[in-house]
């Protein structure tokens, strides 16, 4: 019995220490972070688009956390200043990401605000970025003989357009693009925003 108590007691102490430093202390330290003045809550279309970003697994190739100039040339690539905890006030779940198979998207809305570009790029990335290895998402679009009223037609380079008919964005594609262009964290930070 004595051995079991030492074993489980010790194991509990170890996981408690790990949880304290990586979960509990950050919880209390970050609990009172306020949103910067320039950051706006997501609209419902943007939130649906954010969900689509998760559904398609964009996070596995795109980060949302530019690093500091002193560490890496993220800013020179147009990915923006180093992010701070306050920038993520409205983010749930977090989408910081761990891979840059594609570029960081924290400021993609500032870098590429064109809805047309994003829709076409989602339909066929290689039509816009030669050599890209991003998946195409044809199922977020519909090929119709001709556009109907209210349809959002996707403009494509002729060699990538279907032989017949037009490519129309489905609601999921429109939501996803409205989320992508909302990713703009180029607003200035107040000293209080850079806190912990």
């Amino acid at each position: 019995m004595r051995n079991e108590i030492r074993l489980f007691g010790g194991a509990l102490a170890m996981i408690a220490a790990a949880t304290a430093v990586l979960v509990v202390v950050p919880y209390f330290q970050l609990r009172d972070v306020k949103p910067p003045a320039g950051l706006h809550p997501y609209t419902s279309a943007q939130l649906r688009g954010r969900q689509e970003y998760i559904r398609q697994g964009c996070i596995y190739c795109h980060s949302q956390q530019p690093r500091d100039r002193a560490q890496a040339p993220d800013a020179e690539r147009g990915w923006g200043r180093a992010s701070v905890a306050a920038d993520y006030f409205y983010d749930s779940p977090h989408l910081l990401g761990t891979m840059r198979t594609g570029p960081d998207l924290f400021n993609i809305g500032a870098r590429q605000p064109s809805l047309d570009w994003h829709l076409g790029h989602l339909y066929q990335p290689r039509a816009f970025v030669p050599g890209s290895i991003m998946p195409s998402f044809p199922y977020l679009f519909e090929v119709k003989p001709k556009a109907e009223p209210g349809d959002r037609v996707v403009t494509l380079p002729p060699s990538f357009a279907p032989a017949q008919g037009v490519v129309v964005a489905r609601p999921a594609a429109l939501d996803l693009v409205s989320y992508l262009v909302s990713l703009d964290h180029t607003y200035p930070l107040a000293p209080s925003d850079t806190g912990p």
């Binding site: 194991a11 170890m14 220490a17 950050p26 690093r67 180093a82 992010s83 920038d87 910081l96």
Partner: peptide
């Protein structure tokens, strides 16, 4: 066993080096 249980438990923050997380972590 015990040093691994202690040290391994606290290494997770190295996935966020350069990220917007507290520096001490």
């Amino acid at each position: 066993f015990w040093t691994q249980a202690f040290f391994y438990g606290q290494v997770g923050g190295h996935h966020l080096i350069g990220g917007p997380v507290p520096t001490w972590l």
